[in-house]
Nucleic acid binder design. Sequence first.
DNA 1: CGGCGTTTTGAGAGAGCTCAACATCGGTGG
DNA 2: CCACCGATGTTGAGCTCTCTCAAAACGCCG
Lengths: 219, 219
Amino acid sequence: MIGDILSNQSYVLGLLGIFQMTVEDWLPVKVRRAAIDRELKTNETLFRLGSKAVGMYEVISGRVRLCRVDSTGREIVLHVAGPGETLAEASLYSAEYHCDAVANTDATVRFFPKRELLAAFEMNPKTAQAFTKMLAHQVMRLRTSIEQRNIRSARERVRHFLALNVGPDSRTVRLRGTLKDLAAEIGLTHEALYRTLAALEVSGEIRRKDGIIVLSKRI
Amino acid sequence: MIGDILSNQSYVLGLLGIFQMTVEDWLPVKVRRAAIDRELKTNETLFRLGSKAVGMYEVISGRVRLCRVDSTGREIVLHVAGPGETLAEASLYSAEYHCDAVANTDATVRFFPKRELLAAFEMNPKTAQAFTKMLAHQVMRLRTSIEQRNIRSARERVRHFLALNVGPDSRTVRLRGTLKDLAAEIGLTHEALYRTLAALEVSGEIRRKDGIIVLSKRI
DNA sequence: CGGCGTTTTGAGAGAGCTCAACATCGGTGG
DNA sequence: CCACCGATGTTGAGCTCTCTCAAAACGCCG
């Protein structure tokens, strides 16, 4: 019955074009029972680059960023994960985490031990396949991120971000955090982002209202 | 016997620290038999973004770049694959390719049909696991690429590239193509790369000789 | 009201991009 | 063998644009 409900939900979400595979969709009961929830305060660290990889996390509420610190000591944001997204999936096959995970807001994460997960993959091919599929999508998403970071023009970079984050109506973008967070997420200084948004608004390309940006032209 | 040779080779390469999982290491005979080799001329296209994803490729010889074309018509290089590397692994679970693949040099690629691969994953969990592992490593590598593209300073970007590509002696980098190709690969104009390399050489940080760059200090 | 973080705007400097000219190298054909 | 040609490699000069440092307005919360 639960299966029916889930697949129904997946179906509906799929139709809406906002379907996202969540952990609950494919993780066996056994693994889910082994999960441990943990609360994080804003800016609290979940794990660090180089620390022992003990398992994977799912963000239940709030937002958690994956980041690295470059040679000049500046932090580079690789990704910001929200509810339903997973962290450190790729670390299942590596001894150490390969980036830092820090809470962007107060957040709750669910921890799935590596051992249980790998055992589940051995036992249940469907589970393993779902995981593989998720990784495959991750690879595509990351390629898109590389594309984005390669854009030097702030205006183009913001446009790229907006295009990738419009809602179902193809013109509304709901921002998930502060503009400052967004700036870090797309690899700009916050000043550059403010100026760019202001310029886009003046030119009539977008309109802003608190946490929402509306494109004047549908993409 | 062939297996013995291969695993032996893998063992040796592993010891040398230059081990890289190749398709032959984990792909079942059945799939390998279904493979088709194809020759590519320099700048010949293997597949395009949006075209139907029919399978995965392995580069046998030469180099093939994965790239996208940005809104200004400029080409962005996402990755350059050399012998032993695979292309479009992630597209196994998607209907279309999500970037272009173009030969950087005359090249030979081996094609593995999607159907055969997916069937092999169903049949043989070990195979599926090896594939998943590869994707996981890919994810980590891509994160590193994002980190690199986020660096705006040409000097730092080149340093980052060199650091990631030194050989076993921790100071020699063998370039795989032209400097122009490298510039595209790391997201710089070729002029910027030339100047940066020249500056690094003047400052004594590196020495150059045709296709080789030697760092003065071990990393 | 005071304090803190976000949002905004200003001014200046640095650095990569662009356009341009030229050198270099390998291959081709007369 | 040499001239020619295309592509790579190299250097120069100017421009644009983002970063950086600064300062101030704004909003929220205790």
